[in-house]
Structure formats: C-alpha cells, structure tokens
C-alpha cells in the first residue's frame, strides 16, 4: 500500500504540514488543501487520490458540504475528522457517504490505522482478503457483482458507497446467519468495534434505505437481531 496518494483537507496549515510529515514517514504521499473549495477544484480537475481526509469544521464551506458535492459522482473513500462529542456531525457524515470518522484531535497512530483499514476494504489492495465472493451473489432478487462492485435489483442499479457495498456483500454471503456487530465491524470496516461506535449501524441503515427505495419499504431483507447483530434473510425455496 505504499506510495498511495492522500488528500488532506483542513484549514489548519501547520497541522496539515505535520500530518503530511507524519504520513510521509509511513510511505504515503500527502497533498494538502486548506479549504473545501480548493479541494473540490483539485478533485474536479481530475486529480485522483486513494483517500480523502476531511475536516468537518472549516471556515467557508464545511467538510459536510464538500462531501455532499462529491457524492455520488466521486467515489473516493473519505475519512472525516469531527470534533469530539459531535455525534450529529458523525452520523450526518456517514449518511452522506463518508467511510469512517475520527474525533479530532486524534492520535496520529489511530488515524494511520483507520487510513489503512479504509484503503484495504476499498479494494485498493487486491484480495488477500476472503471477504469477497468470487462469483456474483443473488438473494431476494438482489444481484451483487463483486467484480464490478455493483448491485442491481431487476433493471435498477443501487448506488452504494464502498463501505455500504462491503456491508451488503458480507451479509449476503452469510445469508441466513446472524452476524454480530463485532464480526461485521472487524471484517467490513477492518477495525475493532469500540463503545458508542455507530458507524456500522449507520452503514446498515443506509443500505436498508437504499434497498427499500427499490424493493418497497415493507420488505425487510436485513433484520436486526436484538442485542446480537444483523441477519440477511435468505430467499425462500
């Protein structure tokens, strides 16, 4: 994974330099933008990055607004940096298609771990991971193609972020089984579940919403098993 290009968007210039230095030691190539506008410009010019690190609180357009403009056309994975205690920002960010979040200020080692986890699961690092099935899966009329990273229901395509895709893929591959939150977080988000961690729940609820838009809200394909985890309901017959 060395040599990956990352884009860091934060209005704190000195912090950006320090982080670029730190991540540079870990073999990442880091570009910095000090506002959402300049980041958007750079991305629109066709610069491609393996990952965006986005500060939510910035003067001018916030990180959330930037995220809103990026999705769904630009699918680059995003890690948000949120103020501590800003649960609402976190959930909003995840719902808007961020892949993970981290409270700021944070331990850079933690940030590094998250970057690696997100990169690993976004498929940049090709399969040392048995998470993904080789062949397309079909359950409940939902067709999931791991090669194309696409999900179809009938003729319709369901747009999912990479985290949402991975959640659905893992659940479908294990249809009929109950998967705990710990399992899902570890296998899908590539990190340990922590207390008050709502990332997985938000991803699952986003997948449900997006599926319900096509399937109708009365069909529940992903069940919440109280105090255990989630389960993809297997097709009958």
């Amino acid at each position: 994974m060395s040599g990956e290009r990352l884009l860091l968007v934060d209005d704190d210039v000195e912090l950006c330099e320090l982080l670029a230095d730190y991540l540079g030691h870990e073999q990442f190539e880091v570009d910095c933008c000090y506002s959402a506008e300049s980041a958007l410009q750079r991305l629109r010019q066709g610069e491609s990055y393996a990952l965006l690190i986005l500060d939510i609180q910035m003067p001018g357009a916030s990180g959330l607004e930037l995220l809103q403009q990026l999705r769904p056309s630009i699918r680059t994975p995003v890690i948000m940096l949120t103020g501590r205690g800003d649960e609402i920002d976190r959930i909003l960010g995840l719902e808007m298609g961020a892949d993970d979040y981290l409270g700021k200020p944070c331990n850079p080692r933690e940030l590094l771990a998250r970057i690696r986890a997100v990169l690993r699961r976004s498929g940049q690092e090709p399969e040392q991971d048995s998470l993904f099935p080789e062949r397309p899966l079909e359950e409940q009329g939902i067709r999931l193609d791991p090669g194309l990273r696409e999900v179809h229901i009938g003729q319709e395509t369901v747009e999912l972020t990479s985290a949402e895709f991975n959640v659905l893929a893992y659940l479908m591959q294990n249809a009929g089984q109950i998967l705990t939150k710990e399992q899902l977080t570890e296998r899908v988000l590539h990190r340990k579940l922590t207390a008050y961690d709502r990332a997985l729940d938000v991803h699952v609820s986003r997948v449900r919403q997006k599926l319900a838009r096509v399937l109708g809200s009365d069909i529940e394909v992903i069940k919440t098993i109280r105090s255990q985890g989630y389960q993809f309901v297997r097709s009958r017959g």
């Binding site: 912090l15 320090l18 700021k104 200020p105 944070c106 850079p108």
Partner: peptide, 13 residues
Amino acid sequence: RAPLARLQVAAGL
C-alpha cells in the same frame, strides 16, 4: 484544540 491536535501529531513524529 488546534494546538493540541498539532501537539499530538508532533508527538507521533
């Protein structure tokens, strides 16, 4: 917070 964030990264370095 801002200086603390920098301090943490500096400590990481």
